[in-house]
Design a protein around this nucleic acid. Structure first.
Lengths: 208, 208, 208, 208
DNA sequence: GGCTAAGCGAGACGGTACGTCTAGTCTTGGG
DNA sequence: CCCAAGACTAGACGTACCGTCTCGCTTAGCC
């Protein structure tokens, strides 16, 4: 509120240029890959001076990060499901599906690059990882309230167990991030998190 | 057979240069970080021509990979423990301890870089990840034989659930890779993998 | 006629801004030199928008040219002297003195820049060089009338011989533009221009 | 002699690249002019990396200076003439002819640029100006020995009077650097430098 | 002992991207 | 129509690093 109240003087920044840059960045990164991507190429394709890019972002990783988030949106909401456990599984499957798509390469690249760029790392964490973790946390808390999950579990740890393997496979490629894999992880983790009294019902869902 | 048997003609490669390069690479990478590291700097510090490096490694990532592995050794063996579950936990704790040390940054960097370099990715997988997975697999199989773990679990998935969170936190830094964290993950995962029977009928599991 | 008579519409140009720009330009050029001088810096120091500068001058050279001329005035008139030859010498010495002052650098810079900028070259010639040449021409013509100088000399060539060496030394620095130097040039050139007859028959020269 | 005795180690600099750069620089400067000339263009045309240029010259002016001198050679020697005065005139005419050629623009540019670049200024003075001044000095001294010129003249001043006007016209363009102009200057200056006893002979040479 | 092959340190090479800079133009809201 | 502010396109600049190459030299095995 207070930040922009003092009306900025001078020519305002062009939203059109902003959008053109993000679009060009995304096209380029899909065309040539993250490493081969050059700021000059983005500027040329966007019909923009390099200075206009550097005025807004510190480096190409930040541009691509913004372009990526502008494309995939803030949080890929989930349709409600009767069983909260189903919602978790659906969430994981949606995530893994994104990883298998062309955006998987982008996430790989951004996470890889983030290992060398603390600011990018923070942006990746706060703008990509955390929104999804918060979603997951809500669903898990709902599962606890519904009695499907034990009430003594560590939710953060639970989220890690569910989602870390997906990132692990994306990055290390010990195997595909297939739907089958995700279901397997989900099932095994749930075996440890599920309430004793309901375990028979829950278990039968996927393998009747 | 023929490669090394037929004594190479000409001047043999200098082991001294080899070692100097690895040492210099490690010192440099700790001094300035992986990204800022340059082949020229390694060559200069090692008192070696650049060509001597390129004759042996394709790029700096490969050099650092070798230097790293030469330093940390092949597999950090584990002292046997009476309970196989204890061995798994000890193994995880040892791994996380390495991640917290100065080598954590190296692993972060190598895994990050591997996202852009398929050859490095394969080297990282085959020379760092897989040896440790094989170790883990042995211990888990032992746990199954001892009846501590159910015999219907997917061992690969189990390894992922145990170790992926450690890499996840190393890279995404949603929290520290502390001993407490590792124990928490271990406990929750084991809650789902452990045999229901109190390990008394362990021997009978393989012949139902 | 129409340009200024028909009262310009809209807000009139600010004389204050005009002066601020010239002052700022001169200060800057003395502070950082002509090459390092930037339009942005002038605008900032003058508290003026860049457009206000470009609305009045085509480039920085023109600004500095104007600032320079506004400072040194149109023509540095000379006090009359009994002997016209003395007036020429005095004029040369005054010129060389200006060259040794801080304005020398400005003249050097403007003349240097003029080699790349035809408009600046013309401005420099018409507004700096020519007024001084005309002054010199008058004095020489007076010398001829007085019989001190031969009446068959080429006045333009004479001016060149007298003044060119000063510019030559300013630019090429084969030696200082000292008073002694100027006197030497004056003396040698005069040796060739002076009337053979000891100025007694001066009046008779125009009717041979 | 001593400088290069300690045989340089490493790969020697390529004379071929050196030559290609100078040739390209000259072609480019004639094609687009000094100001519009870019290091990138030279590098591209020469088939050379930019670093190779910057390794040898500090900036484009230095490159063009070298290219220019390599083209016009060290000193444009003069054919001997019976009369030393004739040799001076011939020398001046040769110089002015060069100024009228395509090299005139180069000299203009280099001298203009030299006003902003002390190193270039020194190079221009020592490698272009001074060799020609030394030639002129020799001829003038010969003229004195032969008795054509007075023996009390200041030779440096005499050279300035003869040559400065040519540079003056080149730069300020108060008129063309024509042969007629040069002859005029020569004549008038000589009128002041010539020995009295021989003046009748010398004068009749050009206007019999 | 001479020959040939390969390795060695040094450092120049072509190439490419970077991020900075300046110029000159354009777009705001306000006078 | 002018003003200050500041964003805009365009493109040169000089740096840095990469991975290759070319020197003269050294170190080995083989003839």
């Amino acid at each position: 509120m207070s930040v922009q109240t003092a009306k900025r003087r001078g020519r305002p920044r062009s939203d059109q240029a902003h959008q053109a840059i993000l679009t060009a960045a995304l096209e380029e990164v899909f065309a040539v890959g993250f490493r081969a991507l050059g700021i000059d190429a983005i500027a040329a394709k966007a019909g923009v001076g390099k200075a206009t890019i550097y005025r807004r972002w510190p480096n190409k990783a930040a541009v691509v990060m913004d372009a990526f988030l502008a494309e995939v949106g803030p949080g890929t909401g989930f349709p409600p499901a009767p069983r909260s456990l189903d919602r978790i599984r659906m969430q994981m499957e949606a995530q893994s599906k994104a990883f298998r798509s062309k955006y998987g390469m982008l996430i790989k690249s951004l996470l890889g690059e983030a290992q060398f760029d603390p600011e990018l790392a923070e942006a990746f964490r706060e703008r990509w990882i955390m929104p999804r973790r918060r979603l997951a946390r809500e669903v898990i808390e709902e599962g606890i309230r519904q009695g499907d999950l034990r009430d003594d579990i560590d939710i953060e740890d639970a989220i890690d167990m569910l989602y870390a393997p997906i990132y692990y496979r994306l990055q290390i490629a010990t195997g595909p991030v297939s739907e089958k894999y995700v279901d397997g992880i989900f099932g095994q983790v749930m075996a440890g998190l599920r309430s004793r009294e309901k375990s028979s019902t829950a278990r039968s869902k996927r393998q009747p």
